[in-house]
């Protein structure tokens, strides 16, 4: 520690840091922008969430109270939404991992570079395409009069439409569609960084393919698994448009409550409190992620 401090002082003396002393002006506009339009607004949101509820009043009154938060955790309508959001987020993360891992593995390990590039472009393009446009496609496919139901009825497999949408199932399918690319891209990097020869060594020592996969590749890819799961979870619990369209207002999650409190009831303080709870949930997930990484890295981190 002392050595480190010494070398820093030494570095400063030799002028290593002073070579480019004017660098700060480069980042100042971005910092100002972020402080003014990001940190202060977030602080305002926190402030208003502790303010006494007053319908239609958006200004800060200064009557600090915890009532808004107490309301979230005592009324079943709201705490069930917290639970529902977390449950949906966790389910979607696991499904994305199961569906996404193989494709990520293919992209990372295919011996044909053209195939890897094509698959990467497909994943990237589907990630970047406007969510609402993709949901339009999902709704045409999964609605009561949608392609799947009409096709199945025409063939005679079912007599009444299957409830594919406007329920939790529809929301889960929609969220998986929207978040899957993020899982895949998080995993590709992790799997690529594993030397394939490790797996080959395990197999040449008599391991079956699956055994090698489970004991070598999978544990080594865990950092990517954690990162992807966290990202998907955070995206899933904060999505408004997917539960709104695929759930048809029947699957009420935290973002839907926030919007309803603001746009329909005008309860700014309470809406802000739900927002703070949602933000807190994301941060909690991130804390779990960091803990998992630390544990995985053992003493190395």
């Amino acid at each position: 520690m002392a050595e480190l401090a010494l070398s820093e002082v030494h570095g400063r003396r030799t002028g290593g840091r002073r070579l480019r002393p004017t660098l700060w002006w480069l980042v100042t506009p971005a910092i100002l922008f972020f402080v003014l339009f990001f940190l202060i607004p977030i602080a305002s949101l926190f402030a208003i969430s502790f303010d006494k509820g007053a319908q239609g009043v958006i200004t800060f009154q200064g009557n600090l109270t915890l009532d808004n938060f107490a309301r979230i955790f005592t009324r079943s309508l709201y705490y069930e939404a917290v639970w529902r959001s977390v449950w949906l987020g966790a389910t979607v993360s696991v499904l994305c991992l199961i569906i996404g891992y193989p494709l990520a593995f293919v992209i990372a390990r295919t011996l044909r570079p053209g195939a890897a590039l094509l698959l990467t472009i497909l994943v990237l393009a589907s990630m970047q395409l406007d969510m609402v446009i993709r949901l339009y496609g999902m709704m045409v496919l999964m609605g009561d009069n949608g392609l799947i139901n009409t096709a199945l009825m025409k063939v005679g497999l079912i007599s009444a439409p299957l409830p594919l949408m406007y329920n939790s199932f529809g929301v889960i399918v929609g969220l998986v569609q929207v978040t899957l690319p993020f899982m895949i891209l998080s995993l590709v990097g992790a799997i690529k960084s594993i030397n394939p020869s490790l797996e080959e060594a395990a197999r040449s020592l008599g391991s079956t393919r699956w055994h090698a996969m489970r004991t070598v590749t999978w544990p080594l890819s865990l950092p990517g698994v954690y990162a992807g799961t966290l990202l998907v979870f955070a995206l899933a619990i904060s999505s408004y448009v997917v539960p709104a369209l695929m759930g048809g207002w029947k699957v009420v999650t935290l973002p839907i409550h926030i919007y309803q409190q603001i746009a329909e009831v005008g309860r700014w303080q309470f809406g802000a409190a739900i927002g703070v709870v949602l933000f807190g949930t994301s941060l909690l997930a991130m804390a779990v992620y960091i803990l998992a990484l630390r544990r995985q890295a053992g003493g190395r981190m």
Partner: peptide, 20 residues
């Protein structure tokens, strides 16, 4: 198995786009 599931993943990613 990985190839098959990859196919499923691609279908999930691309079908909505195709339908639009």
């Amino acid at each position: 198995t990985f190839r098959l599931v990859s196919g499923v993943a691609l279908v999930i990613l691309l079908t909505p786009v195709l339908i639009v």
